[in-house]
Simulated assay, not measured.
Amino acid sequence: MIKKALITGSAVGIGRAIALDLASKGFDVAFHYNQSAVKANQAANQAATYGVKSIALQADVTKPEQAQSLVENVVEKLGGLSVVVNNVGNFLGKPTSEISIAEWQEVIDSNLNSNFYVTTAALPYLKAANGARIVNFACAHAQNVVARKTNTAYVIAKTGIIIYSKSLAQELIRDKITVNVVSPGIVENSFDLEEMIPKLPAKRPATLQEINHAVWFFINPDSDYITGQVLEVSGGWNL
């Protein structure tokens, strides 16, 4: 596998941690941002200290033409593409009946449609890589079809990502591309930590390093035969 990775939403938080972890493992990395230019460039500079090529690129990946342009720029500047981590996705916690049309569209666009647009644009390049990885992000329990009180649109989008990923996985294994899903629960950079921690069996949030570990499990060259899987990193939450 060539070591060329695009991580969407990687100026801060989970995406940034993943990109830096891949850089430490010798991957050339593209940091994607929409508005956080300073932080994305800082992260790219940090990644470069590992002796890899690193770039920061702006795009609104809820727009298909910008997602396409982002991928093309990554391929041009990094010299190829073998790993895509779709990390973008805004959260909305609001009673279901109170969600506005604009809010619904924004949540579905940022979580589900952006994933589809970036992946679709990347597929020709991933097929040419002769061994590639797609890692998508859902959320803990998104595969469980149960009622939601305040985050319905978000979970619908994340459940859609799981179905989309499994469908792609079955199709793309013949092209030496695996497609898997990481589903975090509460993470150290999540909001409302004080409220949520007592509800967690582990009594602590996941660390960013633990999320990195799950992502690397799927990207690792030894995972060629693992595809269409969902790995929750939730400390036993809501089992």
Rank of each mutant, 00 (worst) to 15 (best):
F217P: 00
L168T: 02
Y154P: 03
W104M: 14
A138S: 15
G236Y: 09
W237D: 07
V118S: 01
P198H: 00
Q105Y: 03
A19R: 02
L70T: 02
I161S: 12
P201M: 01
V155G: 02
P221E: 02
K63R: 11
K176I: 07
T178K: 10
L126D: 00
I173T: 15
K4H: 14
L123T: 12
K53D: 14
I186Q: 07
Q105K: 06
I108A: 12
I186T: 13
H32S: 05
N45Q: 14
A44V: 06
N86A: 08
A40F: 02
I156A: 14
V181H: 06
T159K: 14
I173N: 05
G51E: 11
T8S: 05
P221K: 05
S190R: 08
L126W: 01
Y164A: 11
K158P: 08
V233N: 07
S54K: 10
T119S: 13
V29K: 09
K166V: 04
L168H: 02
S167H: 02
K39H: 08
S36C: 09
G89A: 12
R133V: 01
G93H: 14
L239S: 15
E171G: 12
T96N: 15
L70V: 03
V61T: 10
L6G: 04
A142M: 01
N180G: 05
Q170W: 10
A128P: 13
P64A: 09
N144P: 00
T159R: 10
V75D: 15
A147D: 04
A202Q: 07
P64C: 14
T62C: 12
F31I: 13
A40Q: 01
T227Q: 08
V233F: 13
S234F: 00
P124Q: 11
Y33N: 12
E98G: 11
E103N: 13
E103P: 03
A121T: 06
S36Q: 04
A140K: 04
T150N: 09
N144C: 09
I18A: 03
A122F: 13
L126P: 03
F137D: 03
H141P: 05
I226Q: 03
L6H: 01
I101A: 14
I2H: 08
E194T: 05
A153Y: 03
K158S: 04
I134T: 02
S10E: 05
I186Y: 00
M196D: 06
N212D: 02
F27Y: 13
Y225T: 14
G51R: 10
I55Y: 05
A206V: 06
A129S: 15
V181D: 08
S97Y: 10
A44N: 09
L81P: 00
A202N: 08
I7Q: 10
